[in-house]
Simulated assay, not measured.
Amino acid sequence: MLVTQQPVLKRFWYPVIPISALEAGPQAFTLLQTPLVLWLDESGQPCAVLDRCCHRSAQLSKGIVCNGHIRCPYHGWEFEGSGTCVKVPQLTEDFIPRTYKVEGFCCQERYGYVWVALADPLTDIPEIPEVADPQFRQIHQFYEVWKCAGLRLMENSFDNAHPHFVHQNSFGVISEPVPPELDSFEELEYGLQATSVLPVFNSDIQKQNLKTTEDRTVRILESTWFMPFNRKLKISYPNGLIHIIFTGATPIDDQTSQVVQFCVRNDAEAEVSAESIIAFDRQVTLEDQLILEGTDYDVPLDIKVEQHMFTDKPGIVMRHKLAALLKAHGEAEVRRG
Rank of each mutant, 00 (worst) to 15 (best):
L292S: 04
E275W: 11
W225F: 11
D312S: 02
H308C: 06
D204Y: 09
A274D: 12
D281Y: 01
I291F: 05
N239S: 15
Q283S: 12
Q289T: 07
R216L: 15
I235V: 13
P314C: 12
V200R: 02
R216N: 15
I244S: 00
A279R: 00
K313I: 14
G248A: 14
Q258S: 03
S273C: 11
Q289K: 15
S276K: 12
V317H: 03
K207E: 10
S276T: 09
T213L: 14
T285N: 04
T212P: 09
I235L: 13
S203F: 02
Q261Y: 08
T212M: 09
P300V: 07
I242R: 06
K313V: 13
D254R: 03
V260A: 01
R265P: 05
F229E: 00
T250P: 01
N266I: 02
V259Q: 02
L241D: 08
A268R: 14
Q261G: 01
T256C: 04
I316C: 09
I316S: 10
T217N: 12
Q283G: 09
L198F: 15
M227D: 03
A274T: 04
S223T: 09
T295M: 15
T250Y: 01
G248K: 00
V200G: 01
I205P: 01
V218W: 14
K207P: 08
S257F: 05
L233G: 05
G315H: 06
K234V: 12
T311P: 02
P300Q: 10
T224N: 03
T250K: 01
D204T: 10
Q307L: 14
P199I: 04
T256S: 14
Q261S: 11
K234C: 10
Q261K: 04
E271P: 08
R282V: 00
Q307Y: 11
L241N: 06
I277K: 00
D288S: 05
I220S: 11
K234F: 10
N230F: 12
L286T: 05
D298C: 01
I316N: 07
T213I: 10
F229K: 01
S223N: 13
V259A: 02
I278C: 04
Y297G: 06
A268H: 12
D204S: 12
Q255M: 12
